[in-house]
């Protein structure tokens, strides 16, 4: 009561605004999106055209899948730095199976299904390894996944070099590349795949016990354990799903490039983690949603697209994206402090 009467009304208004911004980062993201889009449209009028908007939407799909996977891990207060290396590894393994240039199943009807299986299986395998190390050996996620990143990216280049004289594997079958470009009726196949992932992830996070366990572990793993949550198993499941999502994302990227490459999306790690943080998935765990992941991915993709349209130099692009991700991380830390202050 005392504090309410001593704070001037104008100052209270700012506090309410700050509290709202911190508790609902979606408002900040949407505001930034509107301002940025208006600014770019002023510079390049064609930016708001249907073709561009559709291209933005289609291009963000594989990134969204990878970010959703990363969100599972971040909600349990972990982090997976190996996702892009996993994407490279799955890309070359699947590529080596499917390629018409001497692939293991070249020209076989099984090539595409087995290739797809490779993306998912080897993605899950790397995720499972990370999860086991974090949950059972109690290794810090940062170190485990950093080491996995180094090992897996090296292994991917080595594996690729056994199968081709160059680094990348081309000649992927059209049945596979259709995943990147093809449509079922008027709807892009990649969109259908992504919507399935989005719906399943959202359902899993919001409507299942497993989802509640993830948030409980992220907020307080000790309290979750005492409450009967199978903490280790849930952590392993989060990392395994993250790896699987990385494989799925790699599948769409590889199909679009018609190439299996060990350096697939190797510079995408900051975009993946940054998108999640921008949308409001907390680096400190216990907070996140599929909508948050989507908003973060949408903002970064629109920013990228806008700067591509204007034709700005790479250094400007990197600086702007880095500044926005930094701002989001600062807001995340402030949000935690605000929440702690309230409790």
């Amino acid at each position: 009561m005392v504090s309410d009467t001593t704070v001037p009304p104008r100052k209270q208004g700012y506090r309410v605004l700050i509290a709202r911004l911190l508790s609902e980062p979606a408002f900040t993201v949407i505001g930034l999106l509107v301002v940025y889009t208006l600014a770019v449209t002023a510079a390049v009028p064609g930016f708001l055209g249907a073709g561009t908007l559709s291209a933005i939407f289609i291009s963000l799909l594989p990134l969204l899948i990878a970010v959703i996977g990363q969100s599972f891990v971040m909600i349990v207060a972990g982090i997976d730095l190996s996702v892009t290396a996993t994407m490279g590894l799955t890309s070359v393994i699947a590529g080596s199976v499917m390629t018409a240039n001497g692939g293991y199943l070249a020209d076989s009807a099984l090539a595409v299904p087995v290739g797809i299986f490779c993306f998912l299986f080897f993605g899950a395998l790397v995720g499972l390894f990370n999860g086991l190390c974090v949950a059972f050996i109690r290794m810090p996620p940062f170190i485990v996944t950093l080491a996995t990143m180094m090992f897996v990216s090296g292994a991917a280049v080595l594996y690729s070099s056994w199968h081709t004289t160059s680094v990348s594997i081309g000649g992927l079958p059209s049945g596979f590349t259709r995943i990147g470009y093809g449509t079922i009726g008027p709807i892009a196949f990649a969109l259908i795949l992504t919507v399935l992932v989005v719906v399943a992830a959202d359902f899993g996070l919001r409507r299942t016990t497993w989802g509640r366990w993830l948030f409980a572990i992220g907020n307080n793993p000790t309290a979750a354990l005492i409450s009967g949550v199978p903490v280790r198993a849930v952590q392993v499941s989060a990392y395994t799903l993250c790896g699987t999502c990385a494989g799925l994302s790699a599948m769409i990227y590889s199909a679009r490039l018609e190439t299996g490459t060990p350096v697939l999306s190797q510079n995408l790690l900051l975009d993946i983690i940054g998108s999640a943080v921008i949308g409001g998935v907390s680096l400190f765990g216990g907070r996140g949603s599929v909508l948050a992941a989507f908003l973060g991915v949408l903002l970064l993709t629109v920013i990228d697209k806008g700067m591509q349209f204007i034709g700005l130099t790479l250094f400007v692009v990197l600086s702007v994206k880095g500044a926005i991700i930094l701002l989001a991380a600062v807001l995340d830390a402030l949000r935690l402090r605000y929440a702690e202050g309230k409790s």
């Binding site: 490039l257 350096v263 999306s265 697209k305 034709g311 790479l314």
Partner: peptide
């Protein structure tokens, strides 16, 4: 007139950049 795009050695990004330039006309 020149519009520049640097992909930072990222094939996926370069593909998106090409699409942007096509949309840019």
């Amino acid at each position: 007139t020149m519009l520049e795009n640097i992909s930072n050695l990222d094939d996926s990004r370069q593909f998106q950049q090409v699409q942007s330039m096509i949309e840019r006309g």
